[in-house]
Amino acid sequence: MAAAAAAGAGPEMVRGQVFDVGPRYTNLSYIGEGAYGMVCSAYDNVNKVRVAIKKISPFEHQTYCQRTLREIKILLRFRHENIIGINDIIRAPTIEQMKDVYIVQDLMETDLYKLLKTQHLSNDHICYFLYQILRGLKYIHSANVLHRDLKPSNLLLNTTCDLKICDFGLARVADPDHDHTGFLTEYVATRWYRAPEIMLNSKGYTKSIDIWSVGCILAEMLSNRPIFPGKHYLDQLNHILGILGSPSQEDLNCIINLKARNYLLSLPHKNKVPWNRLFPNADSKALDLLDKMLTFNPHKRIEVEQALAHPYLEQYYDPSDEPIAEAPFKFDMELDDLPKEKLKELIFEETARFQPGYRS
C-alpha cells in the first residue's frame, strides 16, 4: 500500500510507478496490472468513496492506442447498470505532455475469474450472474457493438453480487458484411471463450460470437473449470467437437473457408456428449439454455433477447427493466489503419471533457 500523499506533496508512487492523480484522489492501494497499465484503488475526496484507477501508458504502440481509444469512446457513450462506466479521466493539459491516461471507475471487490478459483456457486448465484451478463449484453448488442472478449476476468463483482462487464478494448461495431482481413492475426481474445466460426472463417462476425462466450462462462460457473481449455488453435476446435459432436452437413455448409471445411470433413465422426453427463448436478433449465448458447452453427445460436426470456431466468426476466441503447454506435473511421500519432490526438480530444474549465 502506498503511503497517503500529504496535501501538495506531488504524485504518489505505487510499486515504483508514478500515479499522478492528486489532489482529488489519494490513499492509493495496488490492485493489479494488465498488459499496459496498473490498477489501484484510491480515495475520492470529492465523492467520499474509494474508486478504481487504471493507469494506461499506450502511446508507444499502435495496438494499445487503438484499444484505449475504443474503450474510452464506447464506455463514455454507454450507460447501463451492468456495464462499468467511466467516472473521470485524468491526463496532462497538453498533448505533448500526455504520456499516461488515468481512467477512474467504480471500485468492484472482485471478478468472476477470482471468485470461481475459490468458491463453488449455488444455482441461485449462477442464475443471477447469468441474468446480469445477458442484461448488459442486450444493451451492448442493441448499440450494434460486439464485445468480443467476454470471459470471467472481464466480469466485475461486488459483495452485493452486482455484476458489471468491463474491458471493451477489443470491441467492434457489428459488421457481418465487412471482410476484416487479418482478423485472426489481430484477434487476441482469450482462445477458450472463442466461437468456432472465428477459427473457421475470417469473413465478418456477428453478435452470436458473444453468446458463445457467455455459454462458455455459464459452463464454467457450473463446474469451476473452463469447458474448452484448448492449448492452441486446432486443439481448441477438437475440444469443442469432442463435446458438441461432429457438425451436420448443414452446419458445414455455413463454413465459407474450404480449407477449414475440408479439415472438419477429414475428422472421424464424434457423438455429442449429453450435458447432464458433463454437469450431473446442474439445473435442467440451465443445461437447456447452455445447449442453445453453445450451438456450433452461429445462425442457430440463441440471441440475447431470447436467452433473457428463457425459463431458467424467469424469476428475473423483465423486458421493461432491460434497457437498450438510445442509438446504434458508430465509429467515424476504422481505427485499425491509423498511425499511433493520430490515435493519440483522438484520445486527447475524447478525454477533453474531463479537463478543468472544459467548454463543449
Rank of each mutant, 00 (worst) to 15 (best):
L294D: 07
P176S: 13
K330E: 08
E349G: 05
R261H: 07
E314D: 13
Y233W: 01
L200H: 08
L241R: 01
T351D: 04
V104L: 10
L121K: 09
L343F: 04
S41W: 06
S320G: 08
L150E: 08
H147E: 09
L170Y: 07
D235T: 03
A325V: 09
K203E: 14
T206D: 08
P268I: 03
D288V: 14
I90W: 00
Y30A: 03
G34C: 06
L107H: 06
K330C: 01
N262I: 15
G357V: 15
R148I: 13
K55F: 06
Q249T: 04
G245A: 06
F183S: 13
K340I: 03
D88I: 00
N144R: 12
D167C: 01
L75E: 05
E220D: 14
L156K: 07
M108D: 09
D332M: 10
R225W: 01
L264W: 01
L346Q: 15
S246T: 01
A195F: 05
Y131M: 01
L28T: 07
D337W: 01
R359H: 11
L287E: 10
I89D: 01
E322V: 13
Q17L: 14
R50C: 06
S223P: 12
K99R: 09
E345Q: 06
K340A: 11
K207Y: 13
T351Q: 02
F78P: 06
I89C: 04
Q119A: 10
K203I: 15
R79T: 04
G8I: 08
M98K: 15
T351S: 15
A5F: 00
P319N: 06
K285G: 12
T190Y: 05
N201Y: 14
L308H: 02
L265E: 07
E60H: 00
L69Y: 04
A52T: 11
D321A: 15
E350S: 01
V104R: 09
M199H: 13
T159L: 13
R225V: 06
D336F: 01
K270D: 06
R67T: 01
S284P: 04
T26C: 13
V273F: 03
H147M: 05
Y36N: 15
Y36A: 03
E334P: 00
K48R: 13
W192D: 10
G169I: 00
K54A: 06
F279Q: 03
H147L: 14
S284W: 08
L343Y: 10
V104W: 04
N144K: 13
F19G: 11
D332L: 09
K330Q: 06
Y43Q: 03
K285Q: 13
I95C: 04
F59K: 06
D20N: 15
T110F: 00
L28K: 03
D100A: 12
E33C: 02
E322H: 00
E109N: 02
N27H: 09
G182T: 12
K114W: 13
V39K: 06
A52R: 09
A171C: 01
G215Y: 11
Y317R: 00
K54L: 03
E71R: 00
A42L: 02
